[in-house]
Computed example of a mutant assay.
Amino acid sequence: MKTKLKKDWRGRTKSIEELHNDSKIWLSEIEFINYEIKFLEHLLSTNYIDYLDSGLHDRIEEFSKEIFNDKNIGTTLKDLIFEHENVLSDLIESDCVISNKNYAATHDNLALEINKFISKYKYLKMQIFEIVENVMQKKQQKKLK
């Protein structure tokens, strides 16, 4: 998705619909991440004893803190997107969306922040999945013995 955005939008001004669509996509991504965070919290808490047995208590604590932090960052980003949409609405009413360079710069900065948030979250999720996979493998080995 990042490549397409860079390729399609570089060097030209986005239309009002495209700006609004960006916000809708961002909100959708953050909502989906929030659902995944709930799942990961549940996953980490239900298998907590197994993680303790595997000696992964510290890493799980660290990931739990990071997940909580990501949840807060997602909420903050959602608030920023809603504010951004309100500014867009005001600019539409005054008919100066395209000519407002400050709004375009803010939009680009918000896009960078959201992409950074999503990338960080995906990396965290990958680390959690690796731990869960390792614990499952150890559990399976114990069953085989």
Score class of each variant (00 low, 15 high):
1 M>I: 07
2 K>R: 12
6 K>L: 15
6 K>G: 10
9 W>C: 11
9 W>Y: 15
10 R>W: 06
12 R>T: 11
13 T>G: 02
13 T>K: 12
22 D>T: 00
22 D>K: 04
28 S>L: 03
28 S>E: 02
31 E>Y: 03
32 F>L: 12
38 K>C: 06
39 F>D: 11
39 F>R: 12
40 L>C: 00
41 E>I: 01
41 E>Y: 09
45 S>H: 12
45 S>Y: 09
49 I>Y: 11
49 I>D: 13
50 D>H: 05
51 Y>E: 01
54 S>R: 04
59 R>I: 02
59 R>V: 05
60 I>D: 00
62 E>R: 08
76 T>N: 07
76 T>E: 09
80 L>A: 06
80 L>D: 13
81 I>G: 02
84 H>E: 08
84 H>D: 07
87 V>W: 05
88 L>F: 05
88 L>Q: 03
88 L>R: 00
89 S>R: 06
92 I>R: 05
97 V>P: 01
101 K>A: 04
109 N>P: 01
115 N>R: 11
118 I>W: 05
118 I>F: 02
121 Y>E: 03
121 Y>V: 01
124 L>D: 01
126 M>D: 08
126 M>G: 03
130 E>I: 07
132 V>T: 04
133 E>F: 08
134 N>G: 03
135 V>L: 05
135 V>M: 03
136 M>Y: 14
137 Q>T: 07
140 Q>W: 10
142 K>S: 00
